[in-house]
Nucleic acid binder design. Structure first.
Lengths: 413, 413
DNA sequence: AAGCATAAGTTCAACCAATCAACAAATCTC
DNA sequence: GAGATTTGTTGATTGGTTGAACTTATGCTT
């Protein structure tokens, strides 16, 4: 039996798609695909790559690799750099890296008590990061977004001074986003705000493509690294949400409502949750629940995560007990997620990040008890690499990810 | 601002891929992609389609559509059929349908007390279905698989008599499958069996490509229909597993261990499960648990689902209570799955299918209580359309799905 | 019945991207 | 300095889609 033919059936990767959806493939699609292939290679390689390396690792001919690189160079996405001399014989290679001046991304985050702007260049490096503190709840959406646009425009100007042009803007919002609108943001007290329209009133932002998404989604994307491309990112804020990242891409579900772990049941007969059900995770591990169990309910704390961490360091017994209960509930629910999705990494973000020292042991313990395959492949739990700035960073990176995945749309003409 | 450019960022579909993984795209890839596009259109259309329709709905030119169809016709995948006369003027179109004699698929299922074989033709219609009853646990794996191969060969012969040639074989196995081997099948009492080698000893099967996968996975795929392409298929047997089907394709997780809902926690402090944890779903809704709660433990029942259903019809109070408890636990866990994955359909299979009349109300109730978006988009629960033959059917269909998705590999020369 | 309009399908030159083979360029080795 | 070796480029060739013209087959109109 031909092993090769057999692979045609056994192969479980997603079906080959030259172009997305049901679109036809034309000559241009070939070029687009291969451009992306080459650029991704340059982007993901730890050191500069040569045309010859592109050819040999992709399977393209050196001739084709050369013409692709030619296009990328002319389009300003890639730059030639000298390569350290090797001891090998033969004509020395010319290194290629992502052009630092090439199209970067602007990430904006509108949140309850601050507005953040981050610009990354094409290589993903942070070029500008600005935080504008201030309670947005006292403002109208229009006013808050006018400020947001101004903060974004200032970041754009600063990026331009550093020689980075920006390809697009992505905005992280603390609520339910659909089709350019913020349908509901309980913590801001906003409802059905046309964020796209209000932001693009600003002349500098009008010129750029604009993407909007949930803050937790972008925060999860901000945690993607070459070594961690599949994980569940738990973001504890007022509510508890999870961003499910599979191979570097967000799993959004059929309607974008995935990751609602805050209302997964921990104890079926537990206390009532404001969602109408009983025993939800939020009742045990939500910010509110932890504050209440620690006897801190009602006190308006600026940064609850940091405040709680400070108090935990002092050894407050009520708080420590509350944290342990929260960690137990969190671990139980996350074990379920890992069992269902076969994911082996959990990243704790949001208020859980500063509290991680008190959470990690119990969460880890529950995971190793309850995840079926934990003895073969122990699941790992770690703290988010970025703090509150994760969402703006992830948003900015999502822009450059779009550039790298579809270079043909971003070549300078 | 250009709305088109903005879409480049906002577009959340998976990135365009001309060919899978990091492979280069060549001229042939264009042809392959467009062949698949055209064939899928023919496969999914409810009525025969014309070359002109292929052209207009795909965006290809009529010229290209014609040459693609020419290839598919010559390759035996598609057939011309006369089209009912329309009242329109102009040259009448020629209809195209999947060739009924074209490459079909053979699905085999090896299970504890039977071996099943199903052959479907390229259109997905069942051509042959044979069940060979008999306890496989009393046989050695080699002997059982010799019988399996013989059953498969007989089905192939029967298919051939009906004019259906078969492109490949897929085998559903009740256990952990990896790389052609059955690593562990507790209910069969098998361990590390090289199923591929043993089956392909049979001369008739040697000639065909062979795929192996878990029985629950294929059963889930068997439930895919044009109207239901995203769902969670719960398969209650000795254990409880879920097949997660997203847009017609199985989500397998990073290591193929997804869907282990049997060990998702229902009550953190519940009774011990044999997996080492406590309060797992299996403790409440497993076949064993239901039998025990109904006072039927230990009795070896041939088809436990049917036997329980019969008894439930008689109104056995202990059993009805057990079923309600199971349904409550199942509903709680499934609500979590739906909250996390944003999937709105649940399909009950395995022993839950015959018991569905007693389970559906409570499962549905728990879902509507606990799924966050249930009041906007009520989740639906339904019974699996196919009974125990689902796995063999799904396996057979997975073969033709491979043919339709990569037609270039299956054209007769 | 003839002529016209209309739609389906085919043919063929043109185009475009990748390939292949030969070549030029830049280095190392002996 | 000659030969070996590797990188990158050039130009003819191949293969697949396109676009426009053409053929075919039907309904509608007069």
């Amino acid at each position: 039996m031909s092993r090769l033919v057999s692979d045609a059936l056994q192969d479980t990767r997603t079906a080959r798609r030259l172009v997305a959806g049901g679109r036809p493939a034309r000559q241009q699609s070939l070029r687009d695909h291969n451009l992306g292939l080459a650029l991704r290679l340059v982007a993901e390689a730890p050191t500069p790559v040569s045309r010859a390396q592109i050819a040999s690792t992709t399977g393209l001919t050196r001739a084709t690799a050369s013409t692709l690189v030619e296009t990328l160079l002319a389009g300003g996405l890639v730059r030639e750099v000298p390569l350290p001399p090797t001891a090998r014989s033969g004509r020395p290679a010319v290194g290629l890296v992502l052009a630092p001046g090439g199209p970067g991304g602007l990430g904006l985050e509108v949140n309850v008590d601050y507005i953040a702007a981050t610009v990354v260049d094409l290589t993903g490096a942070v070029v500008v990061h600005e935080v504008h503190a201030g309670d947005q709840r006292v403002l109208t959406p229009a006013a808050a977004l006018r400020t947001t646009a101004a903060v974004g425009a200032a970041a754009l100007a600063a990026a331009q001074r550093k020689g980075v042009r920006v390809a697009g803007t992505a905005v992280a919002l603390p609520g339910l986003v659909h089709d350019g609108r913020l349908l509901l943001a309980p913590n801001l007290g906003w409802q059905d705000v046309d964020v796209r329209r209000l932001l693009t009133r600003n002349r500098r932002l009008t010129a750029l493509p604009l993407a909007l998404d949930n803050e937790a989604n972008y925060a999860a994307l901000g945690e993607v690294s070459p070594t961690a491309r599949t994980f569940v990112h738990v973001s504890g804020e007022i509510g508890i949400g999870a961003g499910i990242v599979l191979d570097g891409e967000l799993y959004r579900g059929s309607r974008g409502w995935s990751g609602e772990i805050g209302h997964v049941t921990v104890v079926p007969s537990g206390p009532a949750c404001h969602c109408g059900a009983t025993g939800c995770l939020e009742v045990y591990a939500g910010q509110e629940a932890i504050l209440r169990a620690a006897g801190l309910a009602g006190q308006s704390v600026g940064a609850p995560g940091a405040a709680l961490a400070e108090r935990a360091t002092l050894g407050d017994p009520a708080l420590l007990a509350a944290l342990d209960a929260a960690a137990g509930a969190l671990g139980t629910v996350l074990a379920g997620v890992l069992n269902v999705l076969d994911i082996s990494t959990v990243v704790l973000g949001g208020i859980y990040a500063p509290l991680a020292p008190w959470l990690l042991p119990t969460v880890g313990h529950e995971l190793s008890r309850r995840v079926l395959w934990s003895s073969w492949e122990p699941p790992s739990v770690r703290t988010a690499a970025h703090g509150p700035e994760a969402a703006a960073l992830g948003a900015a990176r999502s822009v450059v990810a779009a550039v790298v995945s579809e270079p043909e749309r971003w070549l300078v003409t």
